[in-house]
């Protein structure tokens, strides 16, 4: 699949079949994640992949944005202490969020190319998720990505195009 097709074809999927996602597919997605750019090549991201039913149930309880019953969830966390060390104040405040988003998009595009559906999730309680996942204090969940075999093919929400760009200088 060429990149533009993957970019335009990826949708946020919130309904999955019961079929689990093979571990080698999950590892492939992890590989896609770590090939994302990161500020100063800091790579302060840390990933926990949840596939087991009990933990999934608990995670859903603290993640109102996690919709449907995905067989796998990537919890993209950041080592905030390491990020401060590498990126100064800007690290934990800003760069970690950007780095996580880059990794999330790589996961989603690679998954789409593999026929899988995904949805990126920001609506969860980071402290509660960290506690359930046994994360030490400096590891903070920043985003989640659900992964599974799509049960539906959602229609593409409208995109603005002509009204969102200018060449050379802003002219709104």
């Amino acid at each position: 699949m060429d990149v533009m097709t993957a970019i335009k074809g990826r949708r946020s999927v919130r309904s999955f079949t019961d079929q689990p996602v093979d571990q080698d597919m999950l590892l492939k997605l992890l590989e896609a994640a770590v090939w994302a750019p990161s500020a100063g090549n800091g790579q302060t991201w840390r990933f926990v992949i949840v596939t087991e039913e009990t933990m999934m149930k608990k995670l859903k309880m603290v993640s109102p944005g996690l919709l449907g019953d995905p067989p796998a969830v990537f919890v993209i966390a950041q080592d905030m202490a390491l990020s401060k060390q590498k990126g100064g104040q800007m690290g934990p405040e800003t760069l970690t969020k950007m780095d996580s988003a880059m990794a999330a998009q790589n996961i989603m595009l690679a998954a789409h190319a593999m026929g899988l559906g995904t949805c990126v999730i920001a609506s969860f309680h980071p402290g509660a998720a960290a506690k359930l996942l046994d994360m030490p204090e400096q590891i903070v969940p920043t985003l989640m990505v659900t992964v599974g075999h799509p049960a539906v093919k959602p229609p593409p929400p409208k995109r603005l195009f002509e009204e969102v760009y200018w060449f050379e200088a802003y002219n709104g």
Binding site: K60, M61, S63, S123, H125
Partner: peptide
């Protein structure tokens, strides 16, 4: 029901900023 209660309680907290 516990799962639902938890969904509502966490939503209440998160909605302050959502």
């Amino acid at each position: 029901i516990f799962g639902l209660v938890s969904y509502v309680v966490v939503s209440a907290r998160n909605l302050l900023e959502e």
